[in-house]
Nucleic acid binder design. Structure first.
Lengths: 108, 108
DNA sequence: CGAATTGATATCTATCCGGTTATGGATTTC
DNA sequence: GAAATCCATAACCGGATAGATATCAATTCG
């Protein structure tokens, strides 16, 4: 039941650190918290918290192996974003079509 | 000089009230501040501030006419968003291609 | 078993942010 | 010109949030 609600998504991606983490996961694939912390520019607890937010937004999955946790991206989660932008463009376009219709009718 | 930096964009769209305003502009086209305030659920100054944020993110333009200000959406501003999601998917896909290459080479 | 490592959680703090009311400048209306 | 309307800005406030440090449970290693 992946909600088509883009709210959590936008909120999760609004933070640059968080977006950076997600971006690294997309670029480099599955990573442990330790690997992600190196180069994140913030402390390990901060990274863990960010990963928690990303997970809640459905943007990452986690896999536990021994004492370490591996995170990987879930690109399907971006779908509501794509849908939303498409919808906005659709509204606009349909208004334009309506205008065309109107002008066409006025033309007669 | 619409920056390909999705940061302002994500931040601007992270707030539901703001996203609602932008959505209405896309659906219904150009609107005055007064019209937008009606149905926004927040005060007029709040609406003005939100419109300021949207404007700074390039998502709306304003047009002054007498004592009222008309706002309209700028859909081109969504482009960095679309580009960014595409990039994320691209990274992922290219990593997958690399894996395919690797397997193909290992196969020989 | 004892020490070390990994990552999550608890707690605290400073800052940001979205909301309000108050106000003022510009314009239209009477 | 006085009154009313429209919208932006200022000042302020409370809650959310991103960050840090401290700590703890779980696991691995010696």
């Amino acid at each position: 039941m992946s909600p088509t609600n883009p709210d959590l998504l936008f909120r999760a991606l609004a933070d640059p650190t968080r977006r950076g983490l997600f971006e690294r996961l997309c670029r480099e694939g599955e990573q442990t918290v330790g690997a992600l912390t190196a180069g994140a520019g913030v402390s390990q607890p901060a990274v863990s918290k960010h990963l928690g937010v990303l997970k809640q937004a459905g943007l990452v999955r986690d896999r536990h192996q021994g004492r370490q946790t591996h995170y990987s991206p879930r690109l399907e989660a971006l779908r509501p974003l794509v849908d939303w932008t498409g919808e906005m463009e659709g509204f606009w376009k349909s208004r334009f079509d309506d205008l065309e219709d109107l002008l066409r009718r006025m033309d007669q």
